[in-house]
Design a protein around this nucleic acid. Structure first.
Length: 476
RNA sequence: GCCUCCUUAGCUCAGCCGGUUAGAGCGGCGGACUGUUAAUCCGUAGGUCCAAGGUUCAAGUCCUUGAGGAGGCGCCA
């Protein structure tokens, strides 16, 4: 008999037919009811066992997360928790799971413990929901851009330029670290390395995406990115996935419109397509926050908040306006900020949180930052002091998007690179783009895991990627 | 990189001002139960109190160092 998938059975139950399913035991209650899940969806299928018809030895091996093959009649359920169930005719154990040694249990376990058991954690309700949602968001990214005529561009993972300007890089080398070839002045002779130059893992595909935008018009990247920053927070990974659209002829305002529309599309996609998983995560958060004092709880439930973000326009302000709001705020006047908001210094996390959670109570896009705190490639504004940069700030997680209109004027870009000590020889091709058929263009980077973090409502970015890489941690 | 906190049974935790034989729930094991929804009920086993050193008549509890983990900040997405 052909195997049926549980999600399919629950979506379109064919009552009084014999079906065969395979899956993992989520619970075995009352020596009679097995909750079986095969990963096709949030909901389990209930298997009803008449224990007089099965050998005791078989029943005693039906343990938490054992793998079963079950066939039986699909019937209407007499119980309240489900609409249909299978009356078991045959049960075969495909894979045992000795509960004496198996680390997982059908109970609340900490995220830290599950993280140490990353090879098993996807079998829990929470993580299977998170990773189904992660997939759905990734799919929605491609669907959104493809439907709008963007081309997915594969930018290199190993890069020869060390001026991508987004952080510390991981070196890629085949040289023997015990016996490094030296130059005459004692430095490392990278000419003897695999690529005959020093190479690193990419920190951003943006500069190469600009090449695509100035030929294909609308492109986006979606791939892994690596930053060797020693960041120890719940919002940073050393290896993460980033989405970077880059669009010819767009200015900073088109860029903001794109960012807002795109992010709302992703949230909507999950709301529409994975309601069961979202509902489970929503309830989970409520349970978890029950024990917190009222002021520490989230003001909205997960689904309610996602709807709210989709249904409301993002606030849009300039950096200079943000500074004024912050300096005029009660929080500042009462000395509640650890850092004073001063024009010219970057917005601190506490400032971002104030703008998003107190001032506007919705996502905020801040634009036109001082040029001295932003990257060399961002387009200079008329005032000579600011650049056409934008950050999209979200509740709980802060910055999800950073982007800008790019400097398309060759001379201006060259001057800026010289001011910031970036060697022209490193980025000759990037300057060439402005010399030959240059065009205004803009783009941004969306941190994929930060988006997953926001949509799932999880608390730590390490729990929305299957195998997190963070300082001091690369297990699995 | 900086600051703070944590580490006690397989898991989640309690253990008060240093004082007898270290406690609970869940899980395991044995038993009961044919409509359960993290099933329930009865019984039972299970401990290098993270490691090393120190203070003390006495250390899970205090001190020092180390290891692992978490949270916050910075950097950013």
């Amino acid at each position: 008999m052909k195997r049926s998938e549980i999600a399919g059975i629950l979506a379109q139950p064919k009552l009084n037919e014999v079906v065969m399913v395979m899956g993992w035991v989520r619970a075995f209650r009352s020596n009679r009811f097995i909750a079986l899940n095969d990963g096709t969806g949030m909901k389990d299928l209930q298997i009803v066992v008449d224990f007089e018809k099965f050998p005791e030895d078989l029943l005693s091996r039906i343990k938490y997360h054992a793998c079963l093959k079950v066939s039986g009649m699909l019937v209407e359920s007499q119980g309240a928790g489900q609409t249909v169930e299978i009356t078991a005719q045959s049960i075969e154990i495909l894979g045992e799971s000795n509960p004496d040694e198996y680390p997982l249990q059908p109970k609340r376990q900490t995220m830290e413990f599950l993280r140490e058991n990353a090879h098993f954690r996807m079998r829990t309700n929470t993580f299977s929901a998170v990773f189904r949602i992660r997939h759905a968001i990734a799919y929605a990214v491609h669907k959104y851009f493809s439907d709008k005529g963007y081309y997915w561009m594969h930018t290199p993972i190993i890069t020869g330029s060390d001026a991508e300007g987004a952080g510390e890089m991981f070196r890629v080398s085949t040289l023997d670290p015990e016996n490094l070839p030296r130059t005459e002045d004692g430095g490392i002779n990278w000419k003897e390395d695999f690529f005959e130059k020093a190479t690193n893992l990419t920190v951003s595909g943006q500069l190469q995406a600009e090449i695509g935008a100035l030929a294909l018009g609308k492109v986006y990247t979606f791939g892994p990115t690596f930053r060797a920053e020693n960041s120890n927070t719940s919002r940073h990974l050393a290896e993460f996935w980033m989405i970077e659209p880059e669009v010819a002829f767009n200015d900073i305002f088109d860029n903001m419109d794109l960012a807002e529309d795109f992010v709302k599309y992703l949230i909507n996609y999950v709301l529409t397509n994975l309601p069961d998983d979202l509902e489970f995560l929503d309830k989970r958060i409520q349970e978890e926050e029950k024990n917190l004092p009222a002021d520490k709880r989230r003001p909205m439930g997960l689904i309610q908040m996602l709807r709210f973000v989709v249904d409301n326009d993002f606030a849009r302000i300039t950096y200079t306006e943000a500074m004024e709001l912050l300096r005029n705020s009660k929080d500042f006047k009462k000395g509640r900020f650890q850092f004073e908001p001063v024009w010219g210094s970057d917005l601190q996390a506490e400032h971002e949180r104030y703008l998003v959670e107190k001032e506007f109570q919705k996502p905020v896009i801040v634009r036109d930052y001082p040029k001295d705190i932003k990257a060399f490639y961002m387009r200079g504004n008329e005032d000579g002091k600011t650049v056409a940069a934008m950050d999209v700030l979200f509740p709980y997680i802060g910055e999800v998007i950073g982007g800008s209109q790019r400097e398309e004027r060759h001379d201006v870009l060259l001057n800026r690179m010289r001011e910031m000590n970036i060697h022209e020889s490193e980025l000759w091709w990037y300057l060439d783009l402005r010399k030959f058929g240059g065009a205004p263009h803009a783009g941004f980077g969306l941190g994929f895991e930060r988006m997953v973090l926001f949509i799932t409502g999880m608390g730590n970015i390490r729990d929305v990627i299957p195998f997190p890489r963070t300082p001091g941690s690369a297990e699995f």
